[in-house]
Each structure stands twice: as structure tokens, then as C-alpha cells.
Design a binder for these strands. Sequence first.
DNA 1: CTGAAAGCGCTAACAG
DNA 2: CTGTTAGCGCTTTCAG
Lengths: 336, 336
Amino acid sequence: MAARMKDIAEDLGVSLMTVSKALRLHSDISEQTRERVLRRARELDFQPNLIARSLVTRRTYLVGVVIPDLMHSFFAEVATGLSRRLAPHGYQTVVANSDENAELEGSQIEMLLSRHVDGLVIASAQENWQSRMPGPLREGKIPYVLIDRMPDMAGIDYVGTRDEEVGALATEHLIQQGCRRVALIRGPGTPNARRRLQGYAETLAKHRRALDLNYVAVGGCDDEGGYRAARQLLGLKQPPDGIFCHNDPIAAGAIKAILEAGLRVPQDIAIIGAGNVRYSDLLRVPLSTIDQGSTKIGETAAEFLMESFNSKSNLGGRTVLLEPRLVVRESSRRSG
Amino acid sequence: MAARMKDIAEDLGVSLMTVSKALRLHSDISEQTRERVLRRARELDFQPNLIARSLVTRRTYLVGVVIPDLMHSFFAEVATGLSRRLAPHGYQTVVANSDENAELEGSQIEMLLSRHVDGLVIASAQENWQSRMPGPLREGKIPYVLIDRMPDMAGIDYVGTRDEEVGALATEHLIQQGCRRVALIRGPGTPNARRRLQGYAETLAKHRRALDLNYVAVGGCDDEGGYRAARQLLGLKQPPDGIFCHNDPIAAGAIKAILEAGLRVPQDIAIIGAGNVRYSDLLRVPLSTIDQGSTKIGETAAEFLMESFNSKSNLGGRTVLLEPRLVVRESSRRSG
DNA sequence: CTGAAAGCGCTAACAG
DNA sequence: CTGTTAGCGCTTTCAG
């Protein structure tokens, strides 16, 4: 069996407490004793049992991360940002996949709570977070941060993107590029998808253009959906000459459909996505996109959590909305 | 505070043990008592404290996953396969990013061991696993499976791809497509990169072609590296007319360099990658690739671990080498 | 079928 | 500076 503090204590003829303190570099231990303890610990390749420690300190140095799909690079980037900020402080992350399934999400969260993680980061698959929220979270027993999917209630920590602005930036850009009929391939029914739609609509209005629902197609979450939605738009008597896609995978699928139809991107139809996914630059046509700072979202969530850990009072209700940034590549560049 | 078993016991006027057994559905509890306990537990929204349980059962239902880069979709896919297989059995995964850094990898593993995870899955960034392997792993105290990067020693569980075959399939394909000068952009210094090189070399030999080291460039791990390596190859007096790239990101970077140089893919230079990453089909030029069954790798590793958990004896030394599969897309299709 | 005793490995609080 | 006492919340073992 692995060495315990007790073993070190017996070997050295000191008490268990002395060992415990020496190992944690408490000040009230003589230089000499500390040395002896540390040396013996090294010899035995001693590692403290974090489970036992957690049981008494009530800190696990574990953060639960609940996301719908690790394979969607947006979430992989968030998770990376998160653990990059957390790791230097000794935290590790338990990553749970909810598969976009509200029920599974719930049970994963319960298990994480059973494990007494110090905090949670959740991209919820719930349609309305309010009703399904597990008790301990509702009661503010444990700090948690929602990301990406914005909660429909106040008082909750949230990190995401200014989604109206995402829609507005993209739409404005397409109009500036001379597009006459700007379409939208919208994502799932989540609140933040709705907000992008809103930014799209407002920008059209600003330019005194009518919002034509024929130009709003539903695209699901991935390239498959984007492909189908684009084909649908291409079937209109007056197909669009610019499309804002809810995310980059959707945009990639749309481009595929357009090229297959014998049209050119951006000359016939300009395309812009959102997310600035890692390989957007290498796609069929280098993809213009709206950068959401996905890594930054993870980093910010990490900071929120660590602030909560170090503050006894409940800081709930902090919100950071990252400012989206237009990234112009070939798929939408018509001028110059 | 959250409810404890003790609370339930007191409320019901039974002993703590009765509660413990009832909750775990032990058979030696009367139907009636069990009902009472379960009901009260539900009322109090009781969740067992897994930390306390772990301390005594010595099982955490936690699996450590150590990978170099979550943002590389190959690893995201492995992680997904892993947790998909593990979750139904009540396991969760602690994911640690090693950032391709051997030292960080080591400390993350130590921490996972301190947490007493039940097992580990590691894509090691160590040049030679043998020497740096943490003690408890060396002594077989805890089950672990290496993935992707093959260990240079026997007796270790490993799940990966038949890497010689990856190299051979790709090279053979390029030759079949009529390439005269087949180059290789190799990955990092890991054993499996070496093995792909070997498959490449053997296939050249089989066709009585000389192995010209000018045609072997070093590409790092990502698209940046692929871009640079390709530019280097393009600088040769006799540039290659076919390139096998160690992975898809590298291939994507190489394609970028080639197109920028005013050459065509595949007409001037045919390209094939490896990994069959999710969006390979949507790249600049749809990318031919060698599928490594990344999700399957995760699933298999999960099964290895669970077998180990359920068997007292050490099963070490199991190896699964998945058979790679050629996926031909446009980037290498010259005939027909 | 039920419960009392003992302890997992560690730390907080306080006494010497 | 060092050690003693008393748990953390649960399970294992064994006696009633």
C-alpha cells in the first residue's frame, strides 16, 4: 500500500500532526523537523490522500464541467481555457458530456454534487434552466457559472457573448459587402440563437429592409444541418446572395451545398459564420466569421469560480458578455 | 448543510447502518424499513457523500484522462468515446491537459493518483515512457491504458492504430495515383510517428524506390507546422508531387502552403493526411485521409479499464491495434 | 433482520 | 514548537 502520514510519523518517532504540518509547510515547525519529514516523505514517494483530506477540509479542488458535446470545437476550446486557468491553482476538472440531453445533464450534475466538486461550469441543454435546476444550485450552496447558453433568469453567474451583436456584426458586414438579400441559417431553439436572430432583424430594419421569413432557415447545430438549410434557401425563386450562419460548422456545410450547386462563394453568395473555430481558415473557402473568444469564455468562467472560492459571500449575478469580433476572410470578401 | 445518513437515521429512529444498507438496496433489510428510508431520503433530497464512501471502499468511480491537447479533435474524439462507454457504469472522467509538456504531464498524473482515480488513460507526451513513469504505475498498483503514443516497452495496455499500416496505406495510395516523388511530413518524435515513417519507407522499398531524406520534412503537430514543412518541400529543386502528412491538421496547413504557391491540389501535388478529423471533408480541398477510428480507441480503452476493475489479477499487456482505413477524397484523387 | 464498534487517512482546534 | 483529542460521512465486520 501507498505510504501514509502515519508511516512517516512512526519511522521518525514524531506525531502524526507534526508530519501533517511539516508537509503543508506550516510555519510552526522547526526547520530541522521539517527537513526530516520531507526527506522521509520523498524516500517513501509519499503522496497525500486527497480524498481523506477533502473529507475534512471540504475542498476537493475539483471543478465539474458539463457540456453538450466535447467534439464541438467551441466547447473543447472553452474547456481548454478553463483548465488552463484552473490548473496553476491546483484544480482539476471533471468533464461530463450531456449529449444535449437534459435528463442526462441533470444526473451528471447530481453526481458531481455528490462528489462535492468545489464549483461547476455548465453549458446547459435545458430549455429553461429555471425549472430543472438541481436543488443545491438553486440554494446557492455551491458556486457555478453558466456559459454560452444564457439563463432566462437573473442572479446567476454567466459568461458568454453579446449575441445580438454577433448577429448585428455579421449582418452589417454582409450588407456592406453589397448583399441585397441577406439570409440567416439559425441554430437550435436556445435563447442565444434567438438573440442572434434579433441582431440580424434589427440590422435589417436599420437599413430599412424587410424581414422575410423565407430567408430564415433552421440549421440545427452542425454541418449536416447547414447543408440542408442552404439547399432549402437555394430552392427559393430569389435565392439569397449573402448568408449569416449561426456557427462555423453550419457555414461549412452551407458552403458545400452552394459549391455543389455550381455557384461561387463569395461572388454569387457570400457566407459568414460564427465561432472562429480552429480550422475555419483552412476550409473549402476560408471562412469569414464572428469570433466569440471561446477560450476567453473558459478563462473568465475559471476566474469567476476562483473568486467565489475565495469569498465567503455569494457573488451571484455576475455577467460577462464578451464583445464579438468580425474576422473577414475570403468567404465574404467582395470588395477590393 | 446537505442531509446525511445520520439525519435520516435520527428522523426515523433507526440506526445509521440500517439507512446505509437500505439505500444501497442490500437484501437484508425488511421491505418496509427500506421504503421508509428511501422516502425520507427523497424528501430530504439526500445524496450520498461519495468522498466519504470512497475513503472506505477505495473506489472513486473516477478515471483520469491525460492528453496533450483537448483542442486537437483527435483527442476530443477519444475522450468522447471514453466517457460515452464509462458513463453508463457510473464513472466520470477527470480530464487533464498536458500541453505536450512531459513535466506537466507527470505532475498531473501524480495529482490524479493522489485523488485515487480508479484508472488512467494516457496519451503520453514523454519521449520514452519507461524512464519517467510514475512509481505506482510502474508497480502496477493501478490500471492504466496508453493510447495513441505507443509505449516502447512490453507488458503495458495499449490501444492505438497499426501505424506502419497507416504509413503504408497512404504511401501506396499516392503511388497508385501516379505520384513519382512521394514526400512525408512527419510528426513529432514519438514512437508512432516513427512507425508511420517505417510504413512509408517499406512501401517505397516495395516499389523499388529510394528513400530520399530530402523528402522527409518535420511538421510538428498542427497546421502551422504543416504549412512550414510544405514550404520547405516546395523549395526543393524537384518538389514532391505527393505528400503524406502525419495528421489532418498538418495536411490542411500543407494544402494552404501549396495553394498559396500557385500550385494545384491534387493535380500538381496530391495530399493525404491521417485521423479523419471531423471537418476534413469541408477543407479547402476535401482531404483524403487515413481513418484511425479515434472514437473507437476511446471506447476500447474504456473497456480495458473496466475489465481491469472487475478482475483482481493484473491483466497488463493487452494491446489492440485498430486497422486503419483509407478514405479517398479530392485532395489525392487523380485518376478517373 | 438490525445495530454497535471500529476505522478509512487526514486536519482543526487547542493544550502542553 | 509539538502532541492530544475529536471528528469528516460513510462502510465493513461481526454480534445480537
